[in-house]
Simulated assay, not measured.
Amino acid sequence: MERSHIDVRFAYEYGDKSLPKIKELVCEKPDSQKKIIPEYLREHCVICCPGTERDIINPDEIIGYGNIYSDGLYYWTDVFINYVDKYNVPVPAEFRKRIMSNYESRRKRHMLLRMVNRLEIYNEAAYDKRYRVCIHRNGLIEYRDLFQSNDDILFRINKETAGHIINPAASELFCYDSDNHGKALIDGYHWKLTFMQNERIIDIIEGTNGEDNRRYNQIKSVIEFAERFIPYDLGSAYMCIN
């Protein structure tokens, strides 16, 4: 089943002509949950954008850059976050309900993902190619060709580079639910990512049939990011390099 997504529209100028203009939404009194709401809104950025957007209320200032955030259902920008935080612009009622009901579970999941010290990437390709790559936070990488066991490779990269692989993968895919695991072909390949703390599974990200384009592209972008660090055929010359 295709997942739905909802763009947060919060003012006349920002997606909903039926709402008041942004200047009319400024409020002196903050939301009763002002401590929780900005924390929830800033917790997870899924797309960083290079642009800038001027503050309609104070045009000499920048209100945001258009970076996109998500909790897996709702999508919003840093522009929205800053209007809420700076001017107490109200959060749409249905989205606010979701924030209140979802806050604790989201916070706990973030805490778990901070414990991840190992990422396993499994690939089942269309043309008799199947492999598993295990990336440890200490820099150790295990590569196993599941068809050619004699091609197993063990080598090491520096910790910083390992972090550059693990952290974005955990961060970029965090917001998507993982309750309905299934097989999704990403350009003809079946991928599965497993986030672990030692031998404990923290989370599994795996596509389902009928993926919507946003989630499909999100999974694909993380896979491609990891693959830039891991050559498709490493070869024996790369074994045990420090």
Rank of each mutant, 00 (worst) to 15 (best):
S4P: 04
Y75I: 13
F155N: 15
I219R: 02
D60N: 15
S18M: 00
E120S: 15
A11V: 00
I68H: 01
C48D: 08
C48Y: 13
M111W: 07
P231F: 11
A11F: 01
K29P: 13
E206Q: 09
D71C: 03
N198F: 03
I22T: 14
A184G: 02
H110I: 15
G210Y: 03
R118W: 05
A162E: 07
I63E: 02
Y40G: 00
C49S: 11
E94F: 14
A226R: 01
M111C: 09
I186E: 13
R3P: 00
M196Q: 07
P168R: 01
S105V: 04
C49N: 12
K97W: 07
D212T: 06
Y65I: 15
R156M: 13
F225V: 11
N158L: 08
E13Q: 14
D177T: 10
S18K: 10
K192R: 01
R156G: 05
I204V: 10
D203M: 02
A237K: 12
C240L: 15
R98A: 03
P168D: 00
R107Q: 11
L140N: 14
H190D: 13
I81C: 08
D179T: 15
F10P: 05
L185D: 15
C48G: 05
L119G: 10
V79C: 02
E142M: 10
I165N: 02
H164N: 07
A93D: 15
G139Y: 09
E43I: 11
I22S: 12
R144H: 09
